[in-house]
Each structure stands twice: as C-alpha cells, then as structure tokens.
Design a protein around this nucleic acid. Structure first.
Length: 854
RNA sequence: GCGGGUGUGGCGGAACUGGUAGACGCGCCAGACUCAAAAUCUGGUUCUCGCAAGGGAGUGGGGGUUCGAUUCCCUCCACCCGCACCA
C-alpha cells in the first residue's frame, strides 16, 4: 500500500475538473439554481488566511449544493480598483494596472491550488474597461432617474501634497506622507440618493431572515430612524421670523418639553457664527470642539462641556419660561438640526451637563409607583416609562399619549411639528484619485455638468500619468480632461474624480450572471440567478458594502436592469483567523518561523533572545503572526488546510490557527486514505445489489452509516462544519474497526468519501476512483439516508433520583413507561437512593430519561 | 458613552425545541510494534474523596423559575466588536 501523495494527487484532480469544465454553471435555466458567492478579493498580491477560510466555506456549500442537484453558480472576480495599487505604484515607480494584474495572476494561481469549485470562465476584474463601462452607463441612467446630484462637501485636504486623503490616511490630524496639518476643504462632489430608499432599506431588513441578526441590527442603527418632533424656540429680543431669530431643534422626547432647562448648539451651527465674540471665547471653544473629532464615540465619551452664549430662548408652550442657549460639545451637527433642547431629568448627557453648569433639573416623567412629590433625580437620569408631571396640560398622561398631545399642541401653535429623522446620509461617491472608474461627466461653462454620450463610453483612464506628484493625476494630465462639451461643442473639462470603489462592488454579483454581455446585465440571466442564495464574507462589511449593494440593486431596478430588491438572500459572516504572538525579551515581535527550541525555552533565531508567548491575535504583519496559506498548502496540501480550517471552531467565530491543529488534519487525511485503501480488496464490485440476508453486525454498520449521512447533511445545512468534521472523524473511527461485512463496508466507505467530498475534494475524488467508480465524484449525487435504518432500535434511559444521575438502563426495543419504571427501580443504586419511601412523582421523558422525585 | 457579542476540562470546542455536561480534535499518560526513533495501532484522560464499589463539586460570579438549567429570567464581572465613506 502506498502513502497518500497529495503533491501529485491534488494537481491531477484540479486538471481533470478543469478539462471537464466540471464547475461551469449551466446555461440551461430550467432546473433549480443555487448562487454561492464569497466576497471577491482585493488583489493585494497574496492570499491570506482570511481568504482561505472564506473560500473554503463557500466551496463546501457550492460543492454540497451541486451534489444535491442544483445548477450552481460559483464565480470569482477581483475588486481591483483602490488606493493600495496607487501607493505601490508610487513606491515601485510602476503603474497601478501592472501591479494589479500581476497580483491577480499570482492570486489566481494560489486560489486554484485550493481546489475550489469555481466557474473561472466568468472571471473579471473591476478595473477592466469592459466592466466599468457599464458602471459609467448605469451612473448616467441613475442621473436621469433623479438618483444623483452634485453638492459641496468636506474632504481632508493635504496642503503639501495637494491631494485629498482618505480618513485612514489622516493620522493625528496630519497627512500620512507629508506630515502636513490637514485642512477641511469643500469640494463639489457627486452623491447617490441612498436616503430616498431609507424606508425601504429599513423595511427590507425584515425579509432577510437568513442574515445574521447583528448585521441587520447594525444596518438598522446605521439608518437610524427616529420619531420625534421639531420644536422652534424663539430667541428673546430677536425677531422670530428671521433665520437668526429662533433655534429649531429635533427631539425624540417631545413629551419632556416642560422639563427643558437649556438649549444646546453644535459648534458649527449657523447661529454660532452670528454671535458677537469680542474676547474670542466663542472662537476658542468652537475650535476646542472641532479638535475633539467627529466620530460619535469620541463625542459621547468626552466630558460634556458648554459655553453660555448669553442668548435666551422662550419656551414655546409657556413663553414666560426663558432658557439659556449653550454651545455644547456633545451636540452633533450632522444629526437632526444640530441643536437640541436639554431635559436633564430624563437624559443622561443633559443631566451631566446640567450638574456641571448648575442648571435646573425638573422631573416631568414619574414612575407609576412613585408619588410625584417624592420623586427626585440624583446622578442618574430617569429614562423609563411613567406618568407626566409638572407639565401643565400633559399631567397624568403616559409617555406615548403625551408625545402625541404635545405634538398636536406644537402644530396648533405653529411652534413645531411631528417628524421622523434618519441618521443615514446620502452616499458621496467622488474620490479625488487616479485608480478608480472615471466619472463620465463633462463640465461645460454654459451647459453645466453634461453626461458623456453613451456612444463615447467608456471613459478610460489615461496610461501616461505621473503618480506621487502634487494633485490628482487625472487633473494634472496635460490633455486628458480637455474635451468638447457634448451638448454645445464649446471647450469643456472632464470630471477628474473617480468613483468610490464601493460602487464597483455594489453590482459585481449581478455582472457574474452575464459576465461578457454588451449591456450591464442580461435580464433573463439575472432573473434566473439572482438573488445570491448564499453570500459569505467578513463581518467588517456589515454596513457599508452590504448596505450600498442593497441600495444599488434598488437603483438598478428603478432603471430596469434587474427585477429584485434584495441582492443577498442569505448571508454568512465568518470569523477571523488568529494566531499566537511571540515577543523576545527586547519586546520585538517574532515570527513563528523564527523560533528555536532550547530545552523547554524558546529563542529567537534573529536576536538570540528568549521569547515569550503573547496573546492570540488577528494575524497581522505588524505583530508578525501571519501564516501564509500557500506555505501550508505546499507543506500539507489543500485538503489538509481546508479540513483544519473547517474543524474545531464554528465558522462564524474567530478561530486560532495552530501548527498542531494543521498536523492533526494532515494525519486525518492520511488516516482516511489508509482506512479506505486497506479495505479495498474485501469489497464487492461497485453497484453490487444489496444482499438478501444481512448479518446483525452488518446491520449495525449500516445504521451507523445512515445516521452519519443524516447528521453530516444536517450539519452542512446549518453551517455546523465543525460538527460535520467531528461526525466524520467518529465515523472513520467506527468503520476502521470493521474487517468484514463487505457489502455494508462498501456502502459505509462510499458514504464516507462522498460526505467528506465538499471539504476534502481531492482525496475524496482519489478514493472514489480507487473504489472503482468511473464517473468522477463531483458528478455523483449526495447520499440519502434510509429512514428505516435511522429508526431508533435501542435506547438508553438515564435514571435520576431528584435530578441526580443514579444509573442507566438499555432497551433493545421500544418500551412503555411502566416497564421503564419497573426496570429502573431494580437498579441497586436507585433502590438505595429511593429507600423505603415511595416517590412523590415519577417523570418519564420517552427514550431519554426517568426521574424519581422524592 | 451608546449598541451588540462572547465566557464550558490543560487547549480548540460539542450538547437539536430545558432532559445522562465535556462528542470530536489537540495535548498528555500508559501499552503494542521497533535495535531505536518517527509513523501507526490499543487503552486512559473535568476536578476531588476513596484500594474499590461508590460519593461530592462543576458550564465567568451571585440569585431566581423548574422534578430537572450550559440552555429561560434578574444582577454583577471580564474580554471582544461596531459607531460615516478604509478596501
């Protein structure tokens, strides 16, 4: 018997699959389809463990569904535009396209070595003009559908490099390359009206029952719908009919209006600029607020601070009450109106603020079981439900009714109205960068922004560019942007921005349905294949990519490109791949490959210093705890890598990559090969009919086989791949003990090989062929469990006294409750525990357990 | 700060709708084979008391519901993730 040689076997089967086009999705659209998609990779140059995990998970599903008889679409492409290519090009004095395409070639080879069941004939890269031409034409479609507009918006501007920076390129307020202090600049940019679909996007989440609930929740929070009211406070001593005569606030708690003790303005609220500021105190406070940063986290965590503007507003419903206006650092300018009224008794931030500035705290909602006269607010705001008090006409009402009535009153007096606001803002898609899809617009002095005519598409990127200089290469290119206006023929200028790369990934799944079509999407192909039945990817895309894509298909539907609302019917979010970290005694990170054993100590081969093991962390270059999947594949084979990544950890959770685990998987690969090879001579020919008489021992094996088929099938359906792996281990151990019962043994081994096929496709193919099959495994059908063999024959009852286990009894056939009780009482241990007393109750759970309650 | 998640042997983890906690793997221990090692095979492995039969404790801590709780409820602790344009 020969040892299994993955080095020759794996490429052999990859070649055979390739030659047979085994994974090409069929054009015959009559049968049931299944579209499996993993998030396509950014071509960084090498695959990492995250890819290995992602594509293994997707491949298990794809292979399983194919065996179940589905017409499976499982494509692969490249999210090929983006900033890293530009950075690499600058560093290597090369061109982003060259870098990108050579990375694609390298990564394609690596992915192929994993043995994925991918239809490579549909591959494309988003940086290819044959892809992005459709993006440009759809942008023009969206423009005519009224889903696009242009507006000034803030960007991070690097005054030294004359360039716009992404947020991640701004470190401590300075440009990452130039080190210059970053300015906020307003540039005219294109926006997609995602807010037009906010209700639908929110509503649609309810239908996505095969999405993780936390992703739905994150999107829900992101959209941030809140019901409340606008309330206008007129400024004492100013003309309320003028813009600067009143403060308009948004509140979700209009019921607490009588508990208001101040108004707060965001630092960049328009009113702030109109305030007299002789001593510069306001300017100083505003700049302090702006330095705080803009993220919600920072603002919410910061100490609540304010500055009294000296202005007073009148309470809209009792004008005799006057409230101070503060500029407050915890008021967000981008949300609501950028102004609030503060009700300290019922909002923690407002309470912290009121205590600091000694403002009044009047409770207006009192818990039902407390006398209003006794209700005091300490250091915690009361945000619960209750009955209104100290609130004139609202007194005695519950919160919901009070909200309704106060809104009616505000509307009647013209000082406010009920409203719904959202946190979601429109999607700014202009990027002042080279390596992206050019925005197909020509700016003309007399005609304005004119779309490039369909016949002139694509607008391609110029190749002769200078990267790394000052400014955007498209803008500084001598000729590229100068073109005639398509409408009037006068001198025009191209839009020199490119699309946000999230646009590229917002419709690629639709393109895979008809990847070579002259139009973006062929309707009947899209109608058949979409939506994606199972999408697999990282949780890091929970909001942006997934929300943009959900919006994008709605926009595509509005312009007739597709007929669906939701792009991804099922979503699976995988966990990260972690690894222990090592540091030497100087604190330098040490790679696993640099470790040397010295007795029971570890040394670094680089520094010769002792090494200690640190935390288990996400693989990252900076912590030097990266394991290269390609090295694993060349050392142990793809099947081992796949098997290990599927075993142990549930796929949605973070997993730890360990060398020992990989070794264990490798041992199992060889063990399965050995177990099957050893049995081969004992087996009857494939296809031998089931014998009439079957020995009791063979029946036991058959029952185990069919239970395994059942368990593994259910485990795969539920994405419990670690459970499927464990079950196959168990079954292999079981089969290994059998040396006879040849017909049943063949049945068992065939099931084993088929069940492990989605996970270890090469070994499974090899053994399937060794078992004498002429057709390849991927063309065989998934095994079916025989219900008769699944039926429970023997059962074990747990016997408890007062919930404590005192013994077990086995029955070879079904029994009734009295028989169980009778048998249970005979167990010596039980007898002892029961003593002379008769139990108060006897609880019997069929086929499970009997419990005597004393 | 707000929102969400996780917590089970030495380790990764299993346990379907409340029903024998620790499947399966790693590691470790013992044995077989071997001149020896590796590989392989067999058995054991939650802690604790006990020679044993058997008992006690045990799923982050505390409390509750129940005949019975890893599972449901309350509360506390620890760690992790998200919170605006980065792929």
């Amino acid at each position: 018997m020969t040892r299994y040689n993955f080095k020759t076997t794996e490429p052999k089967w990859q070649k055979i699959w390739d030659e047979r086009k085994a994974f090409a999705a069929s054009d015959d659209m009559s049968g049931p389809k299944y579209y499996v998609l993993e998030m396509f990779p950014y071509p960084s140059g090498r695959i990492h463990m995250g890819h290995l995990r992602n594509y293994t998970l997707g491949d298990v599903i794809a292979r399983y569904k194919r065996a179940q008889g589905f017409n499976v679409l499982h494509p692969m492409g490249w999210d090929a535009f983006g900033l890293p290519a530009e950075n690499a090009a600058i560093e290597q004095k090369s061109h982003p396209a060259k870098w990108t395409y050579s990375n694609i070639a390298a990564m394609r080879e690596q992915l192929k070595s994993m043995g994925l069941s991918i239809d490579w004939s549909r591959e494309f890269a988003t940086c290819d003009p044959t892809y992005y031409v459709h993006e440009q034409s759809m942008f023009i479609d969206f423009l005519s559908a009224g889903l696009v507009y242009r507006q000034e918006s803030d960007v991070n501007w690097d005054p030294v490099d004359h360039t716009v920076l992404a947020n991640e390129q701004v470190i401590d307020g300075k440009g990452w390359r130039s080190g210059a202090v970053i300015e906020r600049r307003r540039l005219a940019q294109w926006f997609l009206k995602i807010t037009e679909y906010r209700e639908e996007l929110l509503d649609g989440l309810k239908s996505l029952d095969r999405w993780p609930s936390r992703v739905r929740l994150m999107q829900e929070n992101w959209i941030g719908r809140s019901e409340g009211a606008y309330v206008t406070f007129s400024i004492v001593g100013r003309d309320a009919s003028q813009d600067d005569g009143a403060v308009r606030v948004f509140t979700t708690r209009p019921d607490t209006l009588f508990g208001a003790s101040f108004c707060g303005l965001a630092a960049d609220h328009p009113l702030v600029a109109t305030l007299p500021d002789e001593d510069g105190r306001i300017a100083a406070f505003v700049s302090e607020c702006q330095q705080l940063g803009t993220s919600e986290e920072v603002i919410e965590r910061a100490e609540k601070k304010g500055l009294d503007t000296g202005l007073r507003v009148a309470h809209p419903l009792s004008p005799e009450i006057e409230l101070p206006i503060y500029i407050a650092n915890f008021v967000l300018s981008g949300y609501g109106t950028g102004a609030i009224f503060g009700c300290p008794a019922h909002d923690q931030r407002d309470l912290d603020f009121a205590r600091k500035y000694d403002l009044s705290v009047t409770p207006v909602v009192v818990p039902t079981d407390v006398d209003p006269a006794d209700f005091r607010i300490g250091n915690e705001a009361y945000i619960g439900n209750g009955i209104l008090a100290n609130s004139e006409f609202l007194n005695g009402l519950d919160v919901a009714t009070a909200k309704k009535q106060v809104i009616e009153k505000l509307e009647a007096t013209g000082s406010g109205e009920g409203a719904i606001t959202y946190r979601l803002r429109d999607w700014g898609i202009s990027r002042q960068r080279y390596w992206g899809c050019p925005i197909p617009i020509i700016h003309c002095l007399s005609c304005g922004a004119v779309p490039v005519p369909e016949t002139d598409l694509p607008v391609t990127l110029p190749d002769d560019i200078e990267l790394g200089g000052a400014g955007n290469p498209l803008d500084t290119h001598p000729t590229w942007k100068h073109v005639a206006c398509p409408d009037c023929g006068a001198d025009g200028v191209r839009d020199t921005d490119t699309f946000d790369t999230f646009i590229d990934s917002s419709w690629y799944f639709a393109r895979f349905c008809s990847p070579n079509a002259e139009i973006p999407v062929v309707r009947n192909a899209a109608d058949y294949w979409l939506p994606v039945d199972q999408y697999v990817g990282g949780i890091e895309h929970a909001i942006l990519h997934l929300l943009y894509s959900r919006f994008y298909v709605r926009a595509m539907k509005a312009s007739g490109h597709v007929g669906i609302d939701e792009p991804f019917a099922g979503l699976f979010t995988q966990g990260m791949v972690n690894h222990v970290t090592y540091r030497d005694s100087d604190g330098n990170w040490v790679q696993p490959s640099e470790l040397v054993e010295d007795g029971d100590k570890l040394l670094s081969s680089v520094s010769d210093l002792p090494v200690t093991m640190g935390r288990i962390e996400k693989m990252s270059k900076s912590k030097r705890n990266v394991i290269d999947p390609s090295e694993v594949i060349s050392a142990f084979g793809a099947d081992t890598a796949r098997w290990f990544i599927l075993s142990d950890s549930p796929p949605e959770r973070d997993m730890e990559w360990t060398d020992a685990g990989a070794q264990g998987a490798f041992r199992f690969v060889n063990r399965v090969h050995r177990v099957v090879e050893n049995a081969l001579q004992k087996l009857p020919q494939p296809g031998t009919p089931e014998p009439q008489d079957i020995a009791e021992g063979a029946l036991v094996l058959r029952r185990e086989t069919h239970r395994t088929i059942n368990d593994v099938t259910i485990a795969i359906e539920r994405f419990h791949f670690n459970g499927a792996v464990a079950r196959l281990h168990e079954f292999t151990n079981f089969v290994h003990g059998y040396g006879e019962f040849d017909w049943a043994l063949r049945e068992a081994l065939e099931a084993l090989v088929q069940l492990m096929g989605p996970m270890m496709p090469h070994l499974a193919e090899e053994l399937w062929s060794a078992l004498g099959h002429s057709e390849i495994l991927v063309e065989s059908n998934w095994p079916r469990a025989n219900d008769q063999l699944l039926a429970v024959k023997s059962v074990t009852f747990a016997v408890q006294v007062n919930g404590k286990l005192r013994g077990t009894i086995d029955f070879t056939d079904e029994v009734d409750n009295t028989a169980v009780e009778e048998a249970a009482r005979k167990i010596p241990n039980v007898k002892k525990a029961l003593g002379e007393t008769s139990p108060r109750r006897v609880i019997v759970v069929p086929n499970k357990l009997i419990n005597f309650v004393l």
